[in-house]
Amino acid sequence: MDKSNLKTDTELVALSLQNADYFGELVDRYEKKFSRYIRRLSGLENASIEDVLQESFIKIYTHLNAFDQDLSFSTWAYRITHNETINYLRKNKKVLVVSLENDDEESGQLIDVMKSEIDVAEEISRQDLIDRIRKTINLLPGKYREVLVLRYMEDLEYKAISDILKMPMGTVATMVNRAKGKFKDLAKKYHLKDWQMNHHKLI
């Protein structure tokens, strides 16, 4: 077993500053997690996700000396990845589209939370429900989608979200609450009662 696998993130940061090879271990540790986050947050295709991911890790590497040990490495790196994703979307004039996959376990959590906000007819299949929820979430303003992804798909605590999005914890809680409220309103407006009639309104 490689010894670096036993090291903490903070130790690997310190070692990476002396030898870049250790940084590879950090990349291996977080590649899947951040790749999934970029996809969930942006709905980008794989090639673009890899570009964003690569740029994020390079930025993390160049900013290793700015790593704030009051935060966990994960939170700090999430912040950089989040910003790089948003920058990529802006630069390429793409719209943030939350991606929900049927087989994604964490997506299931968001689906369950959103499902609890609305009355769902029993005859709707799970795939149909996911489609409706995805489309409804994507009607929400970007700032609400971001907090929903971080809270219910990345399963992060309010404090971590607060440090990633650089906003007070109270504001994060308010935004999560508002996002759920808005989701409920949109769901009522477009989906659940007259899905067949209104689905063309959804992108």
Partner: peptide, 10 residues
């Protein structure tokens, strides 16, 4: 990916 990144760094 880590190899690619390390190569780029180098």
């Amino acid at each position: 990916l880590s190899q690619k990144i390390l190569e780029k760094i180098e």
